[in-house]
Design a protein around this nucleic acid. Structure first.
Lengths: 204, 204
DNA sequence: TGCCAATGTTAACGCCGTTAACTTCGGCAA
DNA sequence: TTGCCGAAGTTAACGGCGTTAACATTGGCA
């Protein structure tokens, strides 16, 4: 169907783009189908030809977010296991820093209950898979402990996810020191936090 | 001011309680001032005598959430440094599991931009302080590395926060195995994830 | 006792998501 | 070439929301 005065011709794509722009600038709470339609010079119900409801539109945005995150994690691709793991952590946090509102939508949990949008779940899983593969690889090479893969992966994911969330919410020191912080924290998970010279606790 | 047919007498308190109940059951998105007023048998604008707007009400809920979290962290109080640290982690994740919707409100970041509600920032800081004190204590006793306190604390907080978020959003295995997972992950941050026997990476 | 500040009320504005019923129009079948 | 049908738009409407303005009630203090 081609472009006409009546038929818009590319509404789905443009709605996605415009909604993404609004999300980036003002967060998902600012996304309204009516305002979106207004900006696109179209009536509000027209959007319902392309999205079942507001939540479906948000789900599409989240899906593209997971795909972008996955690409950034795949781009790390270091040979050395330690560098690969720290690189993944840095890339993850950098994504959250660059796209805070998108990241919040993806992981907010407020919208989009798990299981409501299968394609969304699948996109999230695909991004997670990159992290898990990196951990598994480090383990196969003997760099990481022989602990259960699910445990190591959950630890790594929890760490970078928590750091991302705290960073974009301003709970941690300014963004200038953020890369060092991320690298230092990742290193802590790798090397441990306990003082190795004294395994026993000294008496107080 | 006493209870009357006209004057409710305890609206502020009851609104808080009712909103908290709705939050627990359906999340903050389901909290509406009009519905709240209806449930309390009062007109909607009456609530504006006690809360500047919807966001202020949510801020109050979040504040009480941080206070509850702080109490649960304070209740750990183990002598042994390692047990104290793991105990804090378990308590933190347990709180999130018990109050998922409240936890999301507290850390969602979607509502309540940092700095908008000073008392909220202060309540969050007070909860964070318990974690930092525990870390500092472990460090002073020589159990933890002599790394910068802010780094160690950020790592611990990131880990438990990320684990909490992933847990309540259903990204990790069922809640039955959750305590073991939390304990195992916390132990990983303490002891490290790398295989100690081989510090060098073997050639592939 | 009278008044004032606190705490309620109704009415209204403009926004929102969503649905129903109708219109336009591109492209394919006869 | 024509006719029609389904995709993709339209307007109108419903009910809900946050919020404000203007007004009403009333408890307690001077």
């Amino acid at each position: 169907m081609a472009r006409t005065a009546y038929h818009h011709g590319d509404l789905s794509q443009q709605a996605h783009q415009q909604a993404l722009a609004t999300l980036r600038e003002q967060g998902d709470g600012a996304i309204s189908l009516r305002a979106l339609a207004r900006q696109l010079g179209v009536s509000a119900p027209a959007l319902y030809r392309h999205y079942a409801d507001r939540e479906s539109l948000l789900a599409e945005l989240a899906i593209s977010g997971f795909q972008a995150l996955r690409q950034r994690l795949l781009a790390v691709n270091q040979q050395d296991s330690r560098k690969a793991l720290i690189g993944i952590g840095l890339a993850y946090v950098a994504f959250a820093r660059d796209e805070p509102n998108l990241y919040r939508l993806m992981f907010g949990g407020r919208v989009l209950p798990r299981g409501a949008h299968p394609r969304l779940d699948q996109a999230g899983l695909a991004a997670f898979q990159v992290l898990e593969d990196t951990v598994a690889n480090g383990q196969q090479r003997g760099y990481l402990k022989a602990a259960p893969l699910s445990l190591l992966t959950a630890a790594a994911w929890s760490l970078v996810h928590g750091l991302s969330q705290l960073t974009i919410d301003g709970h941690l020191p300014g963004p200038d020191s953020e890369p060092q912080l991320a690298a230092g924290i990742t290193a802590l998970l790798l090397d441990g936090s306990v003082e190795r010279t004294t395994n026993k606790e000294p008496s107080p």
